[in-house]
Design a protein around this nucleic acid. Sequence first.
DNA 1: CTTTGTAGTGTGAATATTCACTAACCTATG
DNA 2: CATAGGTTAGTGAATATTCACACTACAAAG
Lengths: 197, 197
Amino acid sequence: MTITNEISNRQLEIIEVSGKILIEKGIKGLTTKTVASEMNFSESAIYRHFKSKEEILIALLSLLKQNMNKRLTSEIKPQNTAAENFKAVFTSQFNYFKKNPHFVVAVLSDGLLDESKEIKTIILQLMQNKMQLLGQILEQGKQTNEFNTEISTEDLLPIILGSFRFQMLKWKLSNFQYDITTEGNKTINNLLALIQK
Amino acid sequence: MTITNEISNRQLEIIEVSGKILIEKGIKGLTTKTVASEMNFSESAIYRHFKSKEEILIALLSLLKQNMNKRLTSEIKPQNTAAENFKAVFTSQFNYFKKNPHFVVAVLSDGLLDESKEIKTIILQLMQNKMQLLGQILEQGKQTNEFNTEISTEDLLPIILGSFRFQMLKWKLSNFQYDITTEGNKTINNLLALIQK
DNA sequence: CTTTGTAGTGTGAATATTCACTAACCTATG
DNA sequence: CATAGGTTAGTGAATATTCACACTACAAAG
């Protein structure tokens, strides 16, 4: 366990393994035993890399938050139409989760919510960041007269975000068996159809 | 513990207490100890009323399923407009959860999903029932030319249900501090504005 | 080149705690 | 007097965490 803020390769492995366990067996299945077993080393070895189990979850969520912010921010380009930006953001999300389904936990992280104050904070930040980003795009669309102005951005956001979350939940319930990118694209277009003029 | 299918008063108490614990402390907080403590009797007394902890959860979800079906079905009236039916169904939901916030678990039951096969099945049924009911209303609205036909009912359902779920999540995250019926009404109107002609 | 210190990473055994659940017993009431 | 519903006092299993110990790589020192 190094003192730096950097994440070591071993830590990253543990995070990924934890995410995998989380979606396969749920929060109850994530124990020091299962993590150690999946890592092919003993339980005590975990503590060479993380102070506690909670720290693993915190690291996982922090990583995702960081990644998501960087990734999504880079997708938004002022020269593009709001619809294009809207599509780009969600396409990026769906592609990312297709490659890293073990991070879907973070979207459906209600189960983790009650874990600790710190975890709750990160999850809330994750939501707020996404809301803020989406809010920008919606405002852009209203100003450029692409989107309907009848419904306030504030009211539109939970509808869009809720749809996204629900889609992810369905995907998880199917055990990730269908292609989330094609299904996701359908939803993107449907949502756009609803809010476009 | 009687042999009948009826739920005794004591069982109902336990179910309600469990629901309360579930939203306050999450699935991890729901233990024989916390239930017993909230009931003001010993842990072993629980087993006079339920065979296992899982049975409590199953009873809770079954009760809600039964209740929701009955309640929502009675709200749909063919002589009413689709918009009226739509409103009636959601108003009923919001009113019900306002009075029984401890049952919000069932809407946000992601955490329970991994508990057991049987529990997962009931939760899925709960979702499907609601989808089916809402689907009827949407179809009615399309036939009477009230609703937009651009987006298929199938595609519309997850958007509406996702919005509802997200609204409930926000409410829970706020610790049920605001009035869900007024906030809910806003969402109902917004959704209607989106799908109406 | 060899010794030696040290940081990093692993192990197995032991720990206290918590969990769901059970057994034996008590007692009021119909 | 049987039964429903409560009690106390356990049970074994699982859990997160700690500890003493061992091995390795490698850099500094002699």
